[in-house]
Amino acid sequence: MIQLRNIQKSFGNQLVLKGIDLTVNKGEVVSILGPSGSGKTTLLRCINFLERPNEGEVMVDDFTVNSKQASKKEILTLRKKTAMVFQQYNLFKHKTVMENVMEGLLVVQKSSKETARKLAMEVLAKVGLTEKANAYPVQLSGGQQQRVGIARALALNPEVILLDEPTSALDPELVGEVLEVIKRIADEGITMIIVTHEVSFAKDVSDYIVFMDQGEIIEEGTPTVIFNYPKEERTKRFFKRINREAGILESNLSSVI
């Protein structure tokens, strides 16, 4: 279980997160939606302390880290329990696909080479990239790189995988393959928190939807409730706009999902 309690974060004197509370149960997929600049990325990065919150607590499993007194060691432990998939993939450029996936296993989890290799091969099979195991990131398409990014996170068997707009840097024709992989691992019962603008994907994959605006959670609930019966005016407006914009894309996305 992941629990965020009163997460606050400011940059300079701008309060970007105004006290976020959120609980994610084991095996749940939670999608965070919201307009640009609402603090979604910041919230995600606060969960693994890539951004240190000014206030509040992050609890993963039974391990609690308090923003005020977190030691380096506690932050490391927290990060070992989480993994992240980045918008820009951020694969280690000087390492092959295989090495990217093995890196955390070898260095952080101290697995043996054989164990790491075997596990890496397994997750690469899951994202459909076994034949690219020895390629370098530059030799891959964006979609393939992002699938490696997912494999790298998955290999660590974390309590939760944090995904920040995993498809928004991709060409439209590559979005499908990545969403498909995410969907597949969601079905395996991996806990995930996904920031995304792909509304129909979120509808399909999530157990729970969180809608953020201006550093606050405005509305949350199951997809059925949020998408069909949004209460808040801001949520309604957001969906209306998204639907209008996505109307054209919708058709080719639904063929994938």
Partner: peptide, 13 residues
């Protein structure tokens, strides 16, 4: 910068 963040995200010190 993303390389550093990726390293931290998988738990490296």
């Amino acid at each position: 910068r993303g390389q550093t963040e990726a390293a931290y995200s998988i738990g490296m010190n």
